[in-house]
């Protein structure tokens, strides 16, 4: 009989703790030993002792947090490789969320637990594709855990953006996109759709673009928007962190069409309250159907929900005989979807 997960996976003030391996997963504050799913600010905090993550995540963390702040020691673990830590076997699988994002499979005494981190089951050009991993216990996110969140195909949203450029050929289109993941995905989608004009970027986006390039991604002609003059940006596409699209930085652009790429744009009130003229429903998270389908595909008999709208997901799982539990981990938010106050731009430039 495998051990009950509650005996070896504990919720502590720092976050989710794997006792036999003596490590925290995505802890909210600095700890001696951390296993990090991906480099977003709400998962990868500064100041840990030892950090275990994919090589991509380690590179992104180091660029975001600064040399020496992304773990005193770093240990890379590639997708599909395993590591034994005090009898706990750790394997990382692609989560499809951002470059380097991983699901964590923990195996201990015959018990299989998967921690998804943030994940997105739809294939993306900018990161390795997600696949469900069979387990007994699934520890999942639920950022978009309400049945009103069903993300449309991203290609259709890109088509709307390109259409808008045609209808408003004199206006600068400034698209808010989170600096890690969303911006790169947006550029890649635009290139796939055949948009080959230069794309102008807010200065805060370049450092992470460089990391993506170092791992072999190509983005075509990218130019700094800050250096370009107003006239050159007429009718051009500018990508900026969400916090920049409403401030003075965006207002100095030419009669801008303000767009925002985020799963939250599905709900009108969200778009209205952010003063967005062109909401683009492009998300790097699983939507409602995908959260449910993934839980089913893993064949887990029990699901713990780390953050998001856990009550609806747990209610839906219960109707299918799956036991759910809300962990309500603190410090997790919506910032990587452009919904929260904290943004990558501030961190990168700070």
């Amino acid at each position: 009989m495998p051990p009950n997960p509650e005996t070896w996976l504990l919720v502590r003030p720092e976050g989710l703790y794997c006792e036999p391996a003596d490590l925290f997963i995505d802890p909210a504050r600095a700890v001696p030993r951390a296993l990090i799913t991906h480099a977003h600010a709400d998962h990868a905090r500064p100041g840990h002792g030892a950090v275990l993550a994919t090589p991509e995540t380690l590179a992104l963390m180091t660029r975001r947090l600064g040399e020496g702040r992304a773990g005193l020691s770093q240990q890379p673990l590639a997708y599909g490789e395993s590591l034994d830590i005090n009898g706990v076997r750790v394997t990382l699988y692609p989560a499809g969320h951002v470059l380097g994002s991983a699901q964590i499979l923990l195996e201990w005494r015959g018990s299989r637990v998967v921690v998804t981190g943030d994940y997105c089951p739809r294939p993306q050009p900018t990161c390795a594709a997600f696949t469900p991993v069979a387990c007994d216990l699934l520890i999942t996110e639920a950022t978009f855990g309400l049945p009103v969140f069903r993300h449309p195909p991203a290609e259709g949203e890109i088509a709307r953006l390109l259409r808008s450029l045609a209808v408003f050929p004199d206006r600068t289109h400034v698209v808010g996109a989170y600096a890690l993941g969303k911006a790169q995905r947006l550029i890649a989608l635009l290139r796939v759709a055949g948009y080959d004009a230069p794309i102008f970027l807010h200065g805060a986006l370049f450092p992470l673009i460089e990391v993506y390039r170092a791992f072999g991604q190509t983005f075509g002609d990218l130019r700094p928007a800050t250096a370009a003059d107003k006239a050159a940006l007429k009718g051009a596409l500018v990508i900026a962190p969400p916090a920049a699209i409403q401030d003075r930085w965006a207002r100095r652009l030419h009669d801008p069409v303000v767009a925002l790429a985020s799963g939250w744009m599905r709900v009108r009130q969200r778009a209205k309250s952010r003063g967005v003229e062109l909401p683009l429903v492009i998300s790097d998270h699983a939507d409602w159907d995908e959260l449910n389908a993934t839980a089913d595909a893993t064949q887990a008999t029990e699901v713990w929900v780390t953050h998001g709208r856990e009550e609806a997901l747990i209610h839906a799982l219960a109707s299918r005989g799956i036991l759910g539990r809300a962990l309500s981990l603190i410090g997790r938010g919506e910032e990587d979807e452009g919904g929260g106050p904290e943004t990558e731009a501030v961190e990168v430039t700070a």
Partner: peptide
């Protein structure tokens, strides 16, 4: 599901 609809309507 009426519960899910209720939560969704509250949210939207």
């Amino acid at each position: 599901d009426p519960v899910l609809f209720g939560w969704s309507y509250d949210y939207v």
